[in-house]
């Protein structure tokens, strides 16, 4: 749950990038770190293995300035996608306010996308949060690989399989090129802040 400092009128919220391993969560944050230079309030911290796989998490703090008289601070995190890091994902997800689910468009990762989304649902449920109620945005990453003639899942199929029941905003993207990264984050921020406004009854 977001931290609302009434006295100083500061709201600090947490957005977690979730999804299967090697799907592009860290690449999203790396692009945001470059593209949102003005909003970045600290350096990006990544704890990786030698193979550049996220071991614990990535962390990037942002400052969005004042909205309705409150200073908004955002902490962006990624989770390790590999199946074995289940308890780390649970820990990073604690106190989450909004989620970006980064799905891999590669056809060979179809099953992993579904398993990871199910894992997200279960881990949110352990925090007594519903995947249907939390601010959530889906991103279909690696769309640029279509040009390389690599078998990709169609956006239509991904929508049906991942977003059929959720019906949340979704964006085709290429985190490597930066396409769709900004739009994904902006939508997640919008949903999260709207949600917090209702929850915290915060007004200008």
């Amino acid at each position: 749950m977001a931290n609302f400092n009434l006295k100083d009128r500061v709201i600090e919220c947490k957005i977690v990038y979730y999804g299967p391993g090697r799907g592009g969560k860290t690449t999203n944050l790396q692009y945001i770190h470059k593209a949102f230079k003005k909003q970045t309030t600290g350096e990006m911290i990544s704890i990786n293995t030698k193979g550049d796989r996220t071991l614990f998490f990535d962390f990037l703090p942002l400052g969005l300035g004042k909205i309705k008289g409150c200073e908004i601070k955002v902490q962006l995190y990624t989770v390790p996608g590999q199946v074995r890091y289940s308890s780390t994902r649970k820990m990073v997800l604690k106190g989450v306010d909004g989620v970006v689910f980064v799905a891999d468009s590669l056809e060979v990762r179809r099953k992993e996308n579904m398993l990871s989304l199910k894992d997200l649902q279960q881990n949110l449920a352990e925090q007594k949060k519903s995947i249907f109620k939390i601010p959530l945005v889906l991103q279909y990453n690696k769309r640029d690989l279509a040009k390389e003639s690599i078998p990709l899942l169609s956006v239509k199929l991904m929508e049906r399989e991942l977003n059929g029941k959720l019906k949340v905003p979704s964006f085709p993207a290429s985190a490597l090129k930066g396409t769709g990264v900004r739009a994904t984050l902006q939508e997640c921020l919008k949903l999260t802040l709207q949600h917090l406004q209702r929850e915290l009854k915060w007004a200008g």
């Binding site: 704890i47 820990m91 106190g95």
Partner: peptide, 26 residues
């Protein structure tokens, strides 16, 4: 095989340890 062996906890910098300490204090 290397990846299998690479899932260790490396000794992290004080700054990162501070971050872990804060992040996991709920």
């Amino acid at each position: 095989a290397e990846i299998d062996q690479e899932t260790e906890a490396p000794e992290l910098s004080g700054k990162v340890q501070d971050l872990i300490k804060n992040l996991f204090s709920f």
